[in-house]
Computed example of a mutant assay.
Amino acid sequence: MSTQTIQAPSGIAASQWLRSYYFIRAGFSVAWVAAAFTLGKSAPPVAALLLVAYPLWDAIANIVDAQRSGGLKANPSQALNAAVSTITAIAVVVALGQGLHTVLAVFGAWAVLSGLFQLATGVRRWRAGAQWAMVLSGAQSALAGGFFIKQAIGAASPGITDIAPYAAFGAFYFLVSAIWLSVMQARKRSA
């Protein structure tokens, strides 16, 4: 049995990968938010599917990015984020049977943990550029998670539209990072 060593991409390739990755993450989040406010708002089965898909997508995206960036061992914050996101998707399936307050609490715990892991990834990748937006996004995610948990123990009935703004802010930060990297790359090419 042979073992394969995953090489981290060069600076230019890494920057190009991150730019594309951030555009894809932003696009998915925008589509998810649109679906949440349209289909998910009025169709509970679609809302349930969207609520499971969001952390599952995060897990897949973190695994793919980590593999493109030197492997899971070289990117422990992303490996942990992928594990937490996978567990969250399963927990959301279970929580859906208990009610939306429980789902919101699960999302809150996930937002705190995944935000801290995203913050750590942004700090680790600081030299790649545009990571200040990922650090801010991670910090805001952790704060939003605390808000979700507080909201989950409240009396108001939560729904998918309570989570959608969280995903919209994620889309914003991914888009800012992608555009920032695009500008950096264009400046390097013209220099």
Rank of each mutant, 00 (worst) to 15 (best):
P9C: 01
P9I: 12
G11N: 08
G11F: 14
G11I: 07
G11E: 09
A13H: 13
A13K: 11
A14T: 03
S15Q: 13
S15C: 13
Q16D: 12
Q16N: 14
L18F: 06
L18V: 09
R19I: 10
R19N: 12
S20M: 11
S20D: 07
Y21F: 15
Y22G: 12
F23M: 15
F23C: 04
I24G: 06
G27M: 11
G27E: 09
G27A: 14
F28A: 05
F28K: 04
S29C: 13
V30F: 10
A31L: 04
A31Y: 05
A31M: 02
W32Q: 12
W32C: 00
A34F: 11
A34S: 13
A36L: 14
L39Y: 03
L39W: 08
S42L: 13
P44S: 04
P44C: 07
P44L: 05
P45H: 07
V46Q: 10
V46L: 05
A48W: 10
A48H: 08
A48Y: 06
L49F: 11
L49C: 14
L50Y: 00
L51F: 13
L51Q: 03
V52L: 00
A53T: 03
P55H: 02
P55Q: 00
L56G: 01
L56K: 05
W57L: 03
W57D: 01
D58K: 02
D58H: 02
A59S: 07
A59F: 02
A59H: 01
